[in-house]
Design a protein around this nucleic acid. Structure first.
Lengths: 231, 231
DNA sequence: TTAGTACTTATGTACTACATATAAAAATAG
DNA sequence: CTATTTTTATATGTAGTACATAAGTACTAA
């Protein structure tokens, strides 16, 4: 019969649980623009009655919203609407081991795109102090060929670049992407060498132009761009 | 006494709920590298007993993990480890209305950084078909000065650019950032006009070089970069 | 007025009971 | 003896009750 064949091919329609629906309804409710941060929400009893579900189910949905940082609940006081930490939930999920190669590749590329696009912000925001710190980073351990040192310096240098942008979200994002990058780089083709070192990049950032920096960064990242082809 | 004053200044140490702790413990458990996607997890009863909490609390934690896409549960079968949709939780939280101006600005900048960094991928991945589509987009409604049309075309054009990269994550990310961008642009200073139009960018993408494209994009985005100063 | 107490109330946790779906086992038909 | 159907066992899904805990609120006393 066809039924057995069909069952393999056709995923059954995902019957959402009550908690799923309640979560959705609550999010819609919270997004009503009349509501603003700090506003008090109805009590769990009121919500569960209004939605026609048990307090149990309601709390499973609320639990999600609390995790996302959309609401906070204090005893006796009730629940209040809060502004979420937009990257918090991202962090919980970013485990390279659980990612399919496609996503892994996408995130690897995303990082390259970010790095290539930093130039403008860098040249607007850089200070003499920043340059000094970068110089310290590239000088520090210049002759260390140890792999651990190499990676540490790599992270410190590129991390500092993100820091110079003054964009916390960007910086946090980069930190979160580090494990992904690290994971991918285990297969790196070491034969491809870049002609532009960190030292060169610092020099360009100090005395050069945006355009030169972009070209420099492209060359610096060339081994990674090459890697994309085999991924 | 000082206590009343203190209470205002010092936030009390956030006493995590059991659900918070269970969530953490479960995430640690799931991240053990022995576990791989598709693996069956212990039953709710076993987990709640092992952790020493009620099934209720356990389910609140599980509810979060299910939302993140870390686990799926089927009746009778039990729960299985799944690979999460890394951007799913991001989507639930990205409401410009709930963001402080600082985060809003950061995301606005993030988009600019991405756009400035696209060039390399674009020049690697572009096809004749892509160029044709871009040409269609810029031609279509060239003489429309209607605001709605302008925005639609804007979205279509830049969206297509992301699409050309072939990077789904990047593309989805861009779509999610649209409301933010839109929200910020309400305060845009229309007096600053760019000298590079979409048409120019398409021409460069077709016949020019990466370097030219970056310069062109910079000029194209100049009104937005200017906007950053007042934000 | 102020410090301290009791009261009230909303969230946090535990436990029980049952509904529901479904994998697995048993029974039945061919 | 294989294939199909029926039954059974079991893990998740939902509801409801009970009580613990913290924190506003009102009341009391010095």
């Amino acid at each position: 019969m066809l039924t057995t064949e069909l069952k393999k091919d056709l995923e059954p329609i995902s019957v959402n649980t009550r908690a799923d629906m309640v979560e959705l309804r609550l999010r819609e409710y919270l997004n009503k623009k009349e509501l603003k941060t700090g506003d008090l929400l109805p009590t769990e009893m009121e919500l569960s009655e209004a939605l026609g579900v048990s307090r149990n189910v309601l709390r499973e949905a609320l639990s999600r919203l609390r995790m996302l940082g959309l609401v906070e609940s204090k005893k006796k006081r009730g629940m209040v609407l809060t502004n979420p930490d937009i990257l918090g939930s991202f962090e919980r999920v970013l485990n390279p081991q659980r990612m399919d190669t496609s996503t892994l590749k996408n995130l690897f590329e995303l990082r390259l795109v970010l790095e290539m696009g930093l130039a403008d912000l860098l040249f607007v925001r850089k200070t003499a102090k920043d340059i000094k710190e970068l110089e310290a980073i590239v000088k520090n351990g210049k002759f260390e060929d140890d792999d651990v040192f190499r990676v540490t310096r790599e992270i410190a240098f590129h991390g500092k670049l993100y820091e110079i942008t003054g964009n916390d979200t960007l910086k946090r994002f980069q930190i979160m992407l580090l494990p992904v990058f690290d994971y991918v780089l285990k297969n790196e083709n070491r034969s491809v060498k870049s002609n532009i070192s960190h030292t060169d990049l610092v020099r360009i950032l100090k005395n050069g132009t945006k355009e030169e920096f972009v070209v420099g960064m492209r060359e610096h990242l060339r081994p990674h761009f090459e890697l994309l082809k085999n991924l």
